[in-house]
């Protein structure tokens, strides 16, 4: 590069964030990171939402002792920053003889965090189903569990799609926190490449990878919201 020729700001910008040779060199690594991010994201969303729903359903039985446990679990996990929990689990569990890979730790922590938030959202949904819906079901002879499963939960889930989608996206993006414990997801690949190359280009590639990954999910969320925004009887 010829230092005698003054370069325009635009060239400096492109040179910093979009160097073609680095894009060529590191796109493979970023793609690998995307695969890992997608794997964790899918596992977290499936397990977190399922666990959250199960906890909310258990809570509906209103067994005092069990509900105290659920409430404490949910409140603690909602209060803790996920990063703190990730570090605590990753560096703490080996000291008591439990060794999990960084991938498993990230999956486990984010699943529990999503489950906690999802439980609260599902629970609010269950409570917002009108009492008359329960009574109509019970009067036809449906038992408590049948009423919960067939009548209440389907309505509660539809009502909670919007907050649930937002929360799910927010927590899934936290897969980036995995970089601090060395999970080779997008951000980890990008920062590694950045320290090798000394350029911000890999970070920009990482950012674009997140956008490519999450814009469709945000759009899907919006579609689900309109799909389930059915009129209440």
């Amino acid at each position: 590069m010829n230092a005698d020729v003054p370069r325009g700001r635009w060239e400096i910008f492109v040179e910093t964030f979009f160097r073609q040779d680095l894009i060529d060199e590191y796109s493979g690594a970023i793609l690998q990171g995307m695969v890992v991010t997608i794997e964790i994201a899918i596992l977290v969303v499936l397990c977190g939402l399922a666990l959250g729903l199960v906890l909310a359903m258990i809570r509906a039985y209103r067994v005092w002792a069990i509900n105290v446990v659920i409430t404490v679990f949910v409140d603690v996990l909602r209060a803790l920053p996920p990063l703190v929990l990730i570090l605590l689990v990753y560096f703490g569990l080996p000291l008591v003889g439990l060794n999990f890979s960084s991938f498993v730790v990230l999956w486990l922590v984010l699943t529990l965090v999503l489950a906690a938030f999802a439980e609260e959202i599902f629970w609010a949904g269950i409570l917002s189903v009108h009492k008359g819906q329960w009574e109509a079901a019970r009067s036809t002879g449906l038992g408590f569990s049948e009423t919960l499963a067939y009548i209440i939960i389907p309505q509660a889930v539809r009502m909670t799609v919007a907050p649930l989608t937002n929360r799910t996206i927010a927590i899934t993006k936290n897969t980036a926190l995995g970089t601090v414990i060395g999970v080779s997801e997008i951000l980890n690949q990008a920062t590694t490449a950045q320290s090798f190359s000394g350029s911000a280009t890999p970070l920009m590639m990482g950012a674009i990878a997140y956008i490519v990954l999450f814009i469709p999910i945000v759009a899907l969320g919006r579609w689900i919201e309109t799909r389930f925004a059915w009129r209440r009887a």
Binding site: H130, Q133, E135, A136, S139, T140, I151, R232, A233
Partner: peptide, 12 residues
């Protein structure tokens, strides 16, 4: 069988 003032049909 019970019939309610507010119908309570299951909307889903």
């Amino acid at each position: 069988g019970m019939v309610f003032q507010s119908f309570n049909l299951w909307p889903h």
